[in-house]
Amino acid sequence: MLLNQFLILGALLFSLGIYGLLVRRNAVMVLLSIELMLNAVNVNLVAFEAFLQNANVGGQIFAIFVITVAAAEVGVGLAIILMIFRNRTSANIDELDLMKW
């Protein structure tokens, strides 16, 4: 197996995630896209680990860390979305434009 076949799959997943991140209006779907991007990173980490075969299996361990952090991120992210939804009765991210000037 080539290393690159995994890396390119990772790149594909990542760019699909970016597309979703930029194009989705619903905040929950934006979060889904972010999960895709994190998953792409996991693919890369594990592929490199298999390629380098280090004794300390750092690639896999960091993949686990990424999964953990992603879980935390989803928890907080959904809580924020819930909060926004409660205050504005909409979870559409393009209606949140308070950041302008």
């Binding site: 197996m1 597309y19 298999a50």
Partner: peptide, 21 residues
């Protein structure tokens, strides 16, 4: 998204060629 794909995939291709796992 396409730009990012080009950049990442392109750099992977140039950097690792046909390295085997």
């Amino acid at each position: 998204a396409f730009l990012i794909f080009i950049v990442t995939a392109g750099s992977a291709l140039t950097a690792f060629g046909d390295k085997q796992i």
